[in-house]
Amino acid sequence: MEVVIVETDREAAVIAADAISRLFRENPSAVLGIATGSSPLGIYDELGRRVTGGELSLADARAFMLDEYVGLPEDHPERYRNVVARDFVAKVDIDRANVHGPDGLAKDVPQACASYEQQIRDAGGIDLQILGLGTDGHIAFNEPGSSLGSRTRIKMLTSQTRSDNARFFDDQVDAVPQHCLTQGLGTISECRHALVVATGRHKAQAVHQVVEGPVTAMWPGSVLQLHPHATIIVDRPAASRLQLASYYEEIQRGKPAWQGL
């Protein structure tokens, strides 16, 4: 896993957007995995700036969401399909019809999950997956204890995750749904490039465990240690518990400019 330590959220967003821009210059119809939450917002803003400025186009892109709440009505502002439409689609030139997500209102949940897996396979897999990192080490909604080989499925959210997400529901924990549909750790692990962004001191323990701890279901994001092309971009507060921080910085200083992320 490549660790990139930055000074600001803005720098993290620019570096991530550089990787995405490079991907779409090489393959305009590439498949992007998109995340919700606070971590990717700066990335979407930077991608939007580049699209508006004519530096980048996502017109031929396809995108797949990581997860969706179960049971939120179609018009709920925190339904992830609506969040993605607001925070990502509205800022770039992607065709909304090419943005896909799991069906949180499906009557047959197992079939909906299997169909979503097939959609990803039919698209040729995800080229670059944007990921956030929960304070308990979860990626997507794969909570601690999730199988490292899991596929898209229904999950019950932990109290910690519901508490973390209450800020999107007027700080009312009870308003946060208890269940979600989420890509599994096995599904995520099949992307060609996993790109994690984590900032803030409250993420420091999770960053340390995911990067330097054992590969374990107790810290689900640690599965990315086994990924052939995984990058985590962190600011200094989030990197504050990394034992090898100075080594990671030395690697970045000596990295060939042509290599990119």
Rank of each mutant, 00 (worst) to 15 (best):
residue 106 A to E: 10
residue 64 F to C: 14
residue 67 D to L: 11
residue 105 L to Q: 10
residue 35 A to D: 03
residue 83 V to K: 05
residue 119 Q to H: 12
residue 94 I to R: 08
residue 54 G to M: 06
residue 39 S to T: 09
residue 117 E to G: 02
residue 27 N to L: 02
residue 37 G to I: 08
residue 14 V to L: 06
residue 89 V to T: 11
residue 88 F to K: 08
residue 113 C to K: 07
residue 95 D to Y: 02
residue 68 E to K: 10
residue 83 V to Q: 04
residue 71 G to Y: 01
residue 35 A to N: 08
residue 52 T to V: 09
residue 58 L to H: 04
residue 73 P to A: 15
residue 15 I to W: 15
residue 65 M to S: 15
residue 103 D to C: 05
residue 56 L to S: 07
residue 115 S to W: 03
residue 49 R to E: 13
residue 89 V to I: 14
residue 83 V to H: 03
residue 112 A to K: 08
residue 79 R to V: 00
residue 44 Y to W: 15
residue 99 V to K: 08
residue 108 D to G: 03
residue 97 A to Q: 06
residue 25 R to M: 09
residue 58 L to M: 06
residue 108 D to W: 03
residue 98 N to T: 11
residue 26 E to K: 09
residue 91 K to H: 02
residue 25 R to H: 12
residue 73 P to M: 15
residue 31 V to Q: 07
residue 70 V to I: 15
residue 76 H to D: 11
residue 27 N to F: 07
residue 31 V to G: 05
residue 104 G to A: 03
residue 67 D to W: 07
residue 34 I to G: 03
residue 33 G to C: 09
residue 80 Y to R: 08
residue 106 A to S: 13
residue 110 P to C: 11
residue 109 V to D: 00
residue 104 G to V: 07
residue 44 Y to K: 02
residue 17 A to K: 06
residue 115 S to D: 12
residue 19 A to S: 12
residue 25 R to E: 12
residue 114 A to L: 06
residue 86 R to H: 09
residue 25 R to V: 00
residue 35 A to Y: 08
residue 58 L to A: 04
residue 18 D to P: 01
residue 50 R to I: 13
residue 26 E to W: 10
residue 97 A to T: 11
residue 98 N to K: 13
residue 99 V to R: 08
residue 47 L to V: 05
residue 71 G to M: 14
residue 61 A to D: 00
residue 54 G to E: 04
residue 63 A to I: 09
residue 26 E to V: 02
residue 69 Y to K: 09
residue 77 P to S: 07
residue 25 R to F: 11
residue 98 N to D: 10
residue 25 R to Q: 12
residue 105 L to G: 04
residue 32 L to Y: 00
residue 29 S to A: 13
residue 46 E to Q: 12
residue 69 Y to R: 01
residue 77 P to R: 09
